[in-house]
């Protein structure tokens, strides 16, 4: 797979296949942790890290253990097991080396365990690999990294939107979650504009 193709995969996973704003995965941390820019950055970094790590571990497990033995149906079970373990590991490391980030993430860090964005990326890259044999290990990792960065882009953008919302005079009935959901849908709409852009860019 050429570098151009990898860059294409990377950009596509950030813009056109954005996991939050186009595929609507991982909405829970998107709404929960996007209140402040620094926690949004920390959460996205944790998710990106877990996504790449999870893909790096689940791809070989699937390709070299599950497929040869015809155990594809164990995919979900094994992946959740591995992701849960990885998240626990990230949590232990964070608590040791970055206590402020650990405290800031709070409940959302364990929630990455059940974050469908992480499980989604590990399973969707395998689907892509099944369709296109050229989509191998490296492409999967690039895709996972792109998905994580896409998560970060969405979180940071939305944290900015929410910080501005704080100072707005919002009707009382819309304050809190309602206005957050409305603005989330507007941001998602704006991401529709990216569809097709990446293919054209690399032609």
């Amino acid at each position: 797979m050429s570098i151009t193709q990898l860059v294409g995969i990377f950009l596509a996973s950030i813009l056109t296949e954005n996991y939050i704003l186009c595929k609507f995965f991982g909405i829970c941390p998107f709404l929960g942790v996007s209140k402040k820019l620094d926690t949004a950055l920390g959460m996205s970094a944790a998710v990106t890290f877990v996504m790449v790590l999870a893909t790096a571990v689940t791809w070989p497990i699937y390709t070299y253990i599950l497929v040869p033995n015809e155990f594809e149906y164990l995919q979900t079970l094994v992946f959740i097991l591995v992701i849960a373990g990885l998240v626990q590991l990230v949590e232990i490391v964070l608590r040791k080396y970055m206590p402020p980030l650990y405290n800031a993430l709070g409940i959302y860090l364990p929630l990455i365990t059940t974050n469908c964005a992480v499980l989604g990326i590990t399973m969707l890259v395998l689907d892509k690999g099944a369709e296109d044999p050229a989509f191998g290990y490296v492409a999967s990792l690039v895709n996972a990294l792109g998905a994580g960065i896409g998560f970060l882009v969405a979180m940071v953008m939305f944290a900015g939107v929410r910080e501005r919302l704080e100072s707005c005079d919002i009707p009382k009935s819309l304050r809190g979650l309602p206005i957050t959901l409305v603005s989330a849908s507007l941001v998602a709409c704006s991401f529709l504009g990216f569809s097709g852009i990446v293919d054209k860019l690399l032609q």
Partner: peptide
């Protein structure tokens, strides 16, 4: 299938156990 899941679970468990001891707070 059971053995594969158990082995993966065991590996994850051992890694976590080691990490929690090494990086205990």
């Amino acid at each position: 299938a059971v053995i594969i899941v158990v082995i993966i679970g065991l590996i994850v468990g051992v890694v976590l156990a080691v990490a929690s001891v090494l990086m205990a707070v």
